[in-house]
């Protein structure tokens, strides 16, 4: 059992959803990322996703693309990702989210082992298909961490069953067809997709893409075990006149969202 598994057991007992916050390592700076993690904790997030910035983020909208560029300019590599992961995982369950090539380049077994060594519970791999996962599944088994896959509204029922069978920790439901970024409404399709996922697995299900407000978090928490928020936090940092006020905005947003995930049921 990972810390992440234990978290979902706990929030299910509390009859609420978990709030999962995303920040790329090295954003807005290496030290700034450490402060963002502290701001998340102060705001009451339940788990943290550390992003491994990548040069070709085809799943990400402009907000996270810009953050990835900043992070790469700040010299972020695997070492900085693991450092941020260790900081986060010392306080709450933490995972890494990364496109596949940085894992392959680092070494599949080595990457998985480093996640475990830095207290990480798992890895979210948005562009790794189950067909290409053989080595990764055995690596994550050996390291006793959760391989977390992302499913989409276009994923067929038959395919959902195949993907969730490879998954552990939680199933990441992309709420809409499209890239990451805050949206004015969370697609009603998300609830349908969560329901379809639940027919294939008893794993917790967390919803991401487009959540940025307490009301949206409340709406998603009505049917999901976790609410994932990324772009809204990054935008709060980007829009702030200075880092201090950005961090204050992050904590405030986290507080609001953590109320939302408790109001859904």
């Amino acid at each position: 059992m990972t810390a992440l598994d234990n978290l979902f057991t706990k929030v299910r007992a509390e009859n609420r959803a978990a709030l999962i916050a995303y920040i790329p390592a090295g954003f807005p700076s290496q030290a700034g990322c450490q402060r963002v993690i502290a701001a998340f904790i102060a705001g009451g997030v339940d788990a943290i996703e550390i992003g491994f910035p990548y040069s070709d983020p085809v799943m990400d909208g402009p907000t996270i693309q810009a953050a990835a560029v900043t992070s790469l300019e700040n010299g972020t590599g695997a070492a900085e990702v693991f450092q941020a992961l260790a900081t986060a995982s010392a306080q709450v369950p933490a995972v890494v989210m990364t496109y596949w090539n940085p894992i392959e380049r680092y070494g599949v077994n080595e990457f998985s082992a480093a996640i475990a060594a830095n207290g990480g519970s798992g890895v979210i791999t948005p562009d790794l298909t189950i067909e290409e996962s053989q080595g990764w599944i055995s690596a994550t088994d050996n390291s006793a961490i959760n391989p977390i896959y992302v499913v989409a509204p276009s994923t067929s029922d038959a395919r959902l069953a195949q993907v969730t069978a490879k998954c552990s920790g939680f199933v990441y439901v992309a709420s809409v067809m499209g890239v990451t970024g805050a949206r004015t409404s969370v697609s009603t399709g998300a609830a349908d997709l969560v329901a379809r996922v639940r027919k294939t697995t008893s794993l917790p299900v967390a919803v991401g893409l487009g959540v940025s407000t307490r009301e949206q978090a409340k709406g998603v928490a009505a049917y999901a075990d976790g609410v994932i928020v990324g772009s809204a936090f990054i935008k709060a940092l980007q829009d702030a006149p200075d880092e201090e006020s950005g961090l204050a905005a992050v904590t405030e947003l986290a507080r609001e969202l953590s109320k939302g995930v408790r109001e859904g049921r």
Binding site: D127, L128, E131, E132, V151, S154, T155, R159, A174
Partner: peptide, 20 residues
Amino acid sequence: ILGHFGPYGGRFVPEALIGA
């Protein structure tokens, strides 16, 4: 099979594109 050329090729894409 499955679009591989030895160790190369394959499919590394978001699940959203698999159906297409």
